[in-house]
Nucleic acid binder design. Structure first.
Length: 817
DNA sequence: ATATACACGGATCCCCTATTTCC
DNA sequence: GGAAATAGGGGATCCGTGTA
């Protein structure tokens, strides 16, 4: 049997003591295929230097005899080969020790603690990663496969009989073919319950949405019949019906929003309660959950995606949404929002409200489906770039992206993989203290005209490439023929000879440039996603090196990269000043300078000159020209504030950084007001008009004309309530919510306002009230702690003291004495 | 455990001293 | 008059949220 095939989900099983990969995917006619295949498993034993041939041969003989009987499974070393390999860039002689079962490699490694062996590596990748590296059957690429179709076969314990697929093939031959379009089958789902706590309440309804399919299953009733609503008799039947529909639609991806943490575990808990089997897996198995901090729900053969997790790692940093709630994310990416519906306990819902509830439930799945379709190119490109399965990538962090790319590309450099750090190593790394970071130039507050901003393209990455910095190129001793750099952790030296990590990064860097060009030439979601995947990968390299959990962590490399970052930023500042331009601000990789009376082309010439003096792939580019820019003092008023400025370009577009207006923990009134003030000042430099506006707002505030909505302060609960050492206003608000039985916890955004209180209470937290609590807003607080701080230092630039201007304020301070 | 450091600014915490209150 | 309570000043610390 021969067919084309695209691998989507990877799993593995044991049969007669050996590991087999079980890959689920499709062919181009949409048939669902399961491929069964195997690969040799082995680990590397790196030999000590200068071992005689005789000694090596004796060692091989000894290792070949290793047999284990652990965990009721017999494993033995099957074969030992000797290879010339590299480990951390150093040529080594290494033994490739083949064994029967991947899971026993750890125990085999334990047996190899011999005096002739320096290190043991390559046994901690996980079978699936190992298999993909070994067989190069990578996710979401097309293959032409050939093999025996298993049909009621006894082989592998009759696996084909239990699997709900069109074809089950034992792989014989495989060939990569040109990529073609693949449209996955997606099923989005969402549940509604009475209680938020997992399994505590009943599941009232479940919505399911796929291409040309929409359904709300419920056991509650309504008067009017909606064609997509299907009634069942009780919750148990609802669960059965859900399973039935998932089977019927037979999706590649079952997608939810926060479904790892809510929907799927809830379904499982309720199914257990009713003794209903939630047989969602293609082999009839139930969803399984990982243990640990963040639970993940896995379904065999179907990739369960929690879209929230993917958005959080891959997109959150570029988003304008202040929370990652389905509503806000959908609004930002789809221009669509959740249906208006006030969630209430089901006992309080009656008649037509149920219909609205169904519609609301259905629409959540619609949004989830649309979002998945929107993000599918991105997810898909991350998968293709890292070669790890969709399930893993959809839940991975940035370090996993980088590390996967490294592991799947080591072979080109003949490298043996480094091991994952153990618990002790991690705590050692965590306690080694931080490294000195980037340099930020203190700005001189003021309103400036005609500004140019230069910045380094992918600064950290280009430094790593250009100076060959990595764990494997770090030299133990000073050397004349080396790159040297003085850091806060000492002076470090790096080999001139290119190391695999910088080389690999260079490849990523070049591909990023190439894909960016491709995208610009042919903009579409796929070229955009590819360009973005490489952008993220390229940008995360330095973070990965400094991440304590990374295999290729190096504090020396990290400190060196940052020392170079400081050096190049400071040098650029000096060179720009030497050319006669005043530098107003600089942060890490950027320099803002006054153009004086120079034309844009003259500034560009300066840039070209600066570029000619940069090493390697390092590049300084023009970020943009700006008409005006505003820098202010810190609240203390003594120094210029860093990481806080506002710019306006020639087209009148503003760029505001760090100001309260971009911070979600300030009330809307203060944010909006500051935004308007900044815009007005930048647009025509008219601070008088802006001041007039501020006075109006203050008047409204004093007359209590401001809506409470505009005064809400939102703060996230970053950890469990019990872990707070300080009792902050948002902790108080959170406690109040819990008292009111509103289920909140870590990660929730807490909303409150500051109210007037009868007795004179000093602390803000004593004035905190929830939105639905009766009370009037505290005029003094909003005036002095929100409005004034937001604009005070802006007007200070024009020598206007807002505080004095505000009516009554001056008298009050005088009256205090 | 789930990329890094730098930075701002509000609010509380905590120690100290001065003042007020209590007996 | 002296001890205890209270107020408030100011630096340290906690905390959340930005920029790069």
């Amino acid at each position: 049997m021969k067919t084309d095939f695209i691998p989507i989900d990877y799993d593995y099983f044991d049969w007669h003591g050996r590991n087999y990969a079980k890959i689920t995917g499709r062919n181009s006619s949409g048939k669902r295929i399961c491929v069964i295949d195997t690969c040799p498993v082995y680990l590397w034993a790196i030999l000590k230097d200068k071992l005689s041939k005789d000694k090596i041969n004796k060692l091989i003989k000894k290792i070949e005899k290793i047999e284990l009987d652990t965990k009721g499974r017999k494993t033995r070393v099957e074969k030992v080969e000797i290879h010339d390999k590299n480990f951390l860039g150093k040529p080594v002689k290494a033994l490739k020790v083949f064994a029967t079962n991947y899971k026993d490699l750890h125990d085999v490694a334990d047996k190899l603690g011999l005096p002739e062996i320096e290190k043991r590596r390559g046994y901690d990748l996980g079978y699936i990663t190992h298999y993909i590296i070994e067989k190069k059957i990578t996710p979401l690429h097309w293959y032409e496969i050939e093999g025996e179709v298993l049909n009621n076969s006894e082989e592998f314990g009759g696996i084909d009989a239990v699997l709900d697929v069109d074809l089950c093939i034992k792989l014989d031959k495989v060939k990569e073919i040109n990529d073609k379009k693949f449209t996955p089958k997606i099923l989005a789902y969402d549940i509604e319950t009475d209680e938020i706590q997992i399994g505590k309440g009943e599941i009232l309804m479940i919505s399911l949405v796929s291409d040309g399919f929409k359904k709300v299953i419920t056991w509650k009733t309504a008067h009017k019949k909606q064609d997509y609503v299907e009634y069942v008799k009780d919750e148990a039947e609802l669960l059965e019906k859900f399973t039935e529909y998932v089977k019927k639609v037979s999706p590649d991806f079952l997608v939810g929003y926060f479904s790892d943490g809510f929907d799927l575990p809830y379904l499982k808990a309720r199914a257990e309660k009713h003794n209903v089997k939630l047989s969602l897996g293609l082999d009839g198995s139930q969803p399984r959950f990982s243990r640990g901090m963040s639970i993940t729900g896995k379904i065999k053969g179907i990739v369960h995606i929690d879209l929230l997790k993917f958005i959080r790692t891959a997109y959150a940093q570029y988003m304008t949404s202040e929370t990652l709630s389905l509503n806000e994310v959908a609004k930002e990416f789809l221009g669509d929002t959740k249906k208006d519906f006030k969630l209430e306990h089901s006992s309080k819902i009656s008649g037509t409200d149920w219909e609205k509830y169904y519609e609301y439930n259905l629409h959540d799945s619609v949004l989830t489906l649309n979002l998945f379709e929107k993000f599918w190119p991105d997810l898909s490109e991350f998968v293709k770039t890292t070669n790890e399965p969709v399930f893993e990538i959809s839940r991975a962090g940035l370090s996993k992206y980088t590390e996967s790319y490294i592991l799947h590309n080591l072979e080109k450099y003949n490298e043996i993989p480094e091991k994952r750090p153990g618990y002790e190593e991690i705590s050692k790394r965590k306690h080694s203290g931080g490294v000195e970071g980037a340099f930020v130039l203190e700005p001189k507050p003021g309103l400036y005209e005609n500004i140019a901003i230069f910045d380094f393209t992918s600064m950290h990455t280009s430094i790593i490439i250009s100076h060959n910095i990595s764990r494997s190129t770090l030299l133990e001793k000073p050397s004349k023929n080396a790159v040297s750099i003085k850091t806060d952790k000492g002076t470090f030296y790096f080999k001139k000879e290119k190391g695999f990590f910088p080389l690999m990064l260079r490849e990523i860097f070049e591909l990023r440039k190439k894909f960016k060009k491709q995208y610009q030439k042919n903009p579409n979601p796929i070229t955009k996603a590819r360009s973005n995947a490489f952008k993220v990968l390229s940008a995360s390299a330095h973070g990965y090196i400094g991440f304590f959990g990374g295999r290729y962590y190096s504090i020396e490399a990290s400190a060196s990269i940052l020392a170079f970052v400081r050096k190049f930023n400071k040098e650029t500042i000096k060179k720009v000043e030497d050319s006669g331009h005043k530098v107003i601000y600089a942060d890490t990789d950027s320099v803002a300078l006054l153009m004086n009376n120079k034309s844009e082309s003259e500034i560009k010439k300066l840039l070209t000159k600066l570029n000619s003096e940069l090493p390697g792939v390092m590049e300084l580019e023009l970020e943009d020209f700006y008409k005006r820019g505003l820098w202010v003092t810190t609240r203390a008023g003594t120094t210029g504030a860093k990481k806080k400025y506002a710019l306006i370009d020639k087209k009148g577009k503003t760029k505001i950084r760090g100001f309260e207006t971009v911070r979600r923990d300030w009330c809307k009134l203060a944010r909006d007001m500051q935004n308007k003030v900044i815009r007005q000042i930048l647009k025509d430099g008219n601070e008088k008009q802006a001041l007039k506006y501020v006075k109006e707002i203050i008047k409204e505030l004093k007359e209590r004309k401001i809506s409470k909505e505009d005064l809400v302060i939102r703060t996230q609960l970053k950890k469990p309530l019990s872990e707070y050492k300080a009792t902050t206003p948002h902790v108080i608000a959170a406690r109040k919510m819990i008292e009111k039985k509103i289920p909140i916890g870590q990660g929730n955004l807490i909303e409150y306002y500051v109210a007037e209180t009868r007795d004179k209470k000093k602390l803000v937290r004593d004035k905190v009230k929830l939105l639905d609590e009766k009370g009037e807003y505290n005029k003094k607080y909003y005036l002095e702690r929100q409005i004034l701080p937001a604009v005070e230092n802006i007007f200070q630039v024009f020598n206007i003291n807002v505080q004095e201007i505000i009516e009554g304020k001056k008298q009050m301070t005088l009256g205090d004495f």
